[in-house]
Nucleic acid binder design. Structure first.
Lengths: 345, 345
DNA sequence: GTGAAAGCGCTAACAC
DNA sequence: GTGTTAGCGCTTTCAC
């Protein structure tokens, strides 16, 4: 006998000292624990009668397999970790929703981490998640510390970077070109006849890329260097409201503003309404991401359409393909972008 | 010799066949693996010299402990799972943010699940999370399937229900009384002189409780039975816009509307602006939750203040107290609510 | 202060 | 189709 049988009677308390194991179920059903394992993982390899018997005991005993032990033995946890700057603003929430939806279809769970736009926080989270032996890791952006990259290489797990593009991803990539998207909006605004531009946004790498793209377009057309107003992270609607106030006061000649996302732009739109400023006659406003608020606010926002939800879905599909041993033909997925014209420009 | 030493040379590939273990570090440092374990978990029990030596090897070898194995042996995973209806609307995102913030301070990670307001999805998630042997579980609401309750009892782990109140929680509870909050808003609107009320919201249990509280208040004052317009889940701003349109068309006598959250109310406010309807002169609008959008939209929304973020923080504190062996004196935490009066009523 | 032995609950590889 | 054996990498208990 290699294992001491559990001879003590079950305690009366609701919280058992010890959870039910495969061994317990096996003993009750009169089979070996490996048969119970097969009933759960590869039912087709067990005879129908044995299977039915074991399944009934699993149900009646309320057995829930310990995936910690399973993961340790099989080296597969069926957990994917996602690291986003913040979950509070709809920007990344849609990606998380897409990921969670798709992964749960195949029994994978999502471990979530927030960095507040800090690279060192990202590194710490990456190490914590590697320690949990997640099967895959999803990062936001393509800019990471050397240590993050090195840990990820050493761990050898599938990694997907998102929301941006680069020629040399760590592993896989699902995103769009922020610089090009910014340039497209700059071109659009120039073509609409606007000449004195401003950009209102935070200083995260992707926001900065959009600004720099817009700046390139504007300068290429011989217009003036755009004004850049930086806003703090956090309260986006309010920040947009304050920033547009500042801009109107200090740069009354500006005729078009590009925002690093629609929520900030919506805050600015609301402030313009409150002040009786005509949009786009006096000033044009353009957002980014085509979030839920963009078509709803007055005036409806011209914006750059990208799909946060689709980023989540595609990322999950790539990961699942790798988990299932299917190669991923194209490790870089450019989801593109497009300008959506509405009333605000 | 009880364990076969790892005699093969490390492979040249970036992704090692086998991750570095405590055993590897121990061998390099010339100590036993248990000493490495102590350096990580209880450094005060190791002599400073040994500790320094081991720590330098941990760093140089890039060792990351396998928490799966640790969790299996110690029966503590340092993972908390949270189950919310959806993460896409700021309502629960703030709670998740609070949880994640506070838990990560003590090295706990957050496993996230979404139910889309389905109780059976909740049950499946609860079982999956118990299988992962999470140290604690956070649920939204107090209404759960019998099976969920039974599984949770059997697992014997700390559970916190949130966003509502009940006399008999499964274990712990952090929330507020939705019925009372609805009644308070009903009283407020009556006191402001409104008489013909409507409620616009989804059919989740907490929204229904707010409606029923508001209805009680209105009927107690002898006013007419309020109209209830149900909206689909999903696009809240748009749903608010559509619902207010429907209401204005079919019930032009309504003078005040209570919404099940601020996002829906904001959508309605935007529609009123677009139609040139005077708020609150022609119709008053009141929201719920005091989300970021409430003070920003025009007109600024009267709402019921509650703190999703605080729910997350308090929930995390209760769980951590239990994990650390400190009893939780008061298992039910009523965070209360208050009416915030703004321009819309 | 340090180490040896035992086992957490499961799966992989190999028998029969 | 079913069972046996041998770990997965760690912590716990007990010994020194």
């Amino acid at each position: 006998m290699t294992r001491k049988p559990n001879t003590e009677p079950a305690p009366a308390s609701a919280a058992p000292v010890r959870a039910i194991t495969k061994e317990d179920v096996a003993r009750a059903a009169g089979v070996s624990h490996i048969t119970v394992s097969r009933v759960i993982n590869t039912p087709e390899k067990v005879s129908p009668e044995t299977r039915a018997k074991v399944e009934s005991f699993i149900a009646s005993m309320g057995y829930i397999p310990n995936m910690l032990a399973g993961g340790l033995a099989s080296r597969r946890t069926r957990i994917v970790a996602a690291i986003v700057p913040t979950i509070s603003h709809s920007i990344f929430a849609e990606t998380v929703r897409g990921l969670s939806e798709k992964l749960s279809e195949q029994g994978y769970q999502l471990l979530l981490g927030q960095t507040n736009y800090s690279e060192t926080a990202e590194t710490a989270l990456v190490e914590a998640f590697i320690g949990r032996r997640v099967d895959g890791l999803v990062l936001t952006g393509v800019q990471h510390t050397a240590r993050t990259r090195q840990r990820l290489k050493a761990a050898g797990i599938p990694v997907v970077e998102t929301w941006d593009l680069t020629k040399r991803p760590i592993d896989m990539l699902v995103g769009f070109n922020n610089h090009e998207a910014g340039r497209a909006m700059g071109d659009y605004l120039i073509n609409k006849g606007y000449r004195r531009m401003a950009f209102i946004g935070g200083e995260d790498p992707r926001g900065m890329a959009r600004f720099s793209g817009m700046r390139d377009a504007v300068l290429a057309h011989g217009a003036q260097e755009p004004i850049h107003i930086k806003i703090p992270l956090g309260s986006f609607l309010h920040a947009g409201r304050e920033a547009i106030g500042l801009l109107l006061r200090e740069h009354p000649d500006v005729d078009a503003v590009f925002f690093s996302n629609d929520v900030i732009a919506a805050g600015a739109a609301m402030e313009c309404i409150r002040r009786g400023i005509q949009v786009p006659r006096q000033i044009a406003l353009a957002g980014f991401a085509n979030l839920e608020i963009a078509p709803e606010v007055t005036p409806a926002l011209t914006t750059v359409q990208i799909s946060g939800h689709q980023i989540g879905l595609t990322t999950a599909e790539m990961l699942l393909a790798r988990f299932n041993g299917l190669g991923v033909a194209q490790p870089i997925c450019d989801l593109g972008y497009s300008i959506v014209e509405r009333e605000s420009t």
